[in-house]
């Protein structure tokens, strides 16, 4: 069982959270003309490292806030969590 430290609620069990994937993804700016390639990258392409991975999690059965987690994909160790507007 993963224990994830929500930046708002503290340590809670994995059951309360839902995963949101790669935290480096940014939606293209509204109203800006962008190429098909850029849309393609935004919608379908994600980082997939073995090791440290910055990712979004959602405290769906708690405060319902999205936040960032720095976690190892090879050991599942969690190094750090941060609010969505903070740097990891």
């Amino acid at each position: 069982m993963l224990e994830i430290k929500c930046p708002f609620c503290g340590k809670r069990s994995q059951n309360e959270f839902s995963y949101g994937g790669d935290a480096s993804i940014k939606r293209p700016e509204l109203g800006k003309e962008i190429s098909d390639k850029e849309w393609d990258d935004f919608v379908y392409f994600r980082k997939n490292p073995r090791g440290k991975h910055a990712e979004f999690w959602h405290h769906v059965a708690g405060c319902r806030q999205w936040f960032k987690v720095l976690r190892s994909t090879s050991t599942h160790e969690i190094f750090k969590t941060a609010k969505i507007n903070e740097e990891l």
Binding site: M1, Y19, G21, T73, S74, H76
Partner: peptide, 13 residues
Amino acid sequence: DGYNSYAQRGNLP
């Protein structure tokens, strides 16, 4: 399990 992993082992939930 629902999150990126290369661990070849999962969790009980």
